[in-house]
Design a protein around this nucleic acid. Structure first.
Lengths: 187, 187
DNA sequence: CTACAGACAGACAGGTTCGTCTACCCATAC
DNA sequence: GTATGGGTAGACGAACCTGTCTGTCTGTAG
């Protein structure tokens, strides 16, 4: 399966990493409930015992994947203290949403697939969203906007709508006028 | 289970209606995938054969429920040719979202639970959202707003974000400044 | 009285899921 | 040499899910 053409040394990825990679891809594309453990095990080319050694249950795997995804996303964000950091954040998200193959937001998926808010996956997704909201508020303040909390909430809700719409509409999501709307929300 | 205190004559609801009622409640509260046919059958107090006579498959039941929900919602909407019909629509949705016990949007749930856009349930949910978008555009025009399509898209995305956030946060969804943001989007 | 539509009760088949378990392999460190 | 950590392979149980099927009961229409 290793589709390496001629990249760097190619460290042979530990079993744990292979599992997380495969699980992330499958969960994102097909959903948490729709993807079974057996499928992850098969595609990660890993023994079942190995899987359960690293992740005591499927829920643990989901939570671990969410944490890893959040870390990865954090790293690729525009700086919080750059110029117009709230606007920059929103534009970055919009760019991602317009990427071909984007299917919405994994964190949002946790609440949709596990309605019970005490479910570990739902709780993990919620945690991410809470931190996003805090980040947005800081960015709004750093941008010198009045009433940063209100601006943050407005942008947050709008971005959530973008993710939900991309999930629903796919590449045909009605995003044509999204940046204009964002301008209105932060202006 | 009939929690009737002393209402009108109480027609004894046909089997089909009982199934749809129960299924709707369960699907909304716990999710399409999480609720099994057996559970619907038990709570609707119906025989399995009867169920499968009315709904050839679970997917058919889901689609039927979505259609019924859309009809019900349509009926309770502010008129399209009233004063400020776009604003009225948005405010009505916001009021619903703030209702205790609101858990987000059933139609949105279809895309989240069935990622494949050709799945009947996903397609049904998408159909509803397309019609909502059209409605919003007509309402924007009736409200005399310039660039009704852009306004409709903006309001649409924002409302989708509200539904997604209610699903995620429950009663703690960050809606405190939502009407102010909506004002900005339509103004 | 009879015929029949519609509902009931529930066994059953076939498939899937999560998680446990046994048994074996093999490289490295000591 | 050998203990140990990490991996492989895959059988297995118990639960659950969808959908089919058999057989019984009841109410109404002719």
């Amino acid at each position: 399966m290793s589709s390496a053409t001629s990249s760097p040394p190619e460290k042979p990825l530990s079993a744990r990493d292979r599992i997380l990679r495969v699980a992330g891809r499958l969960f994102y594309r097909e959903g948490y409930r729709a993807v079974g453990i057996d499928r992850v095990i098969a595609e990660a080319d890993v023994a079942k015992a190995t899987f359960y050694k690293h992740f005591p249950s499927k829920d643990d795997l989901i939570v671990a994947w969410i944490a890893r995804a959040e870390d990865g996303a954090q790293a690729a964000l525009p700086p919080e203290d750059g110029p117009r950091p709230l606007t920059a954040y929103a534009q970055a998200m919009l760019a991602i949403a317009r990427t071909g193959g984007c299917m919405g937001c994994t964190y949002q998926g946790t609440a949709s697939e596990f309605h019970n808010p005490t479910h570990p996956a739902h709780a993990a997704g919620l945690g991410v969203k809470v931190r996003v909201l805090e980040t947005l508020e800081r960015r709004a303040a750093n941008q010198g906007l009045p009433n940063p909390r209100a601006r943050a909430e407005a942008v947050f809700l709008f971005l959530e709508g973008i993710w939900a719409s991309v999930r629903m509409f796919g590449p045909d999501a009605p995003l044509a006028h999204a940046e204009a709307a964002l301008e209105r929300l932060v202006a």
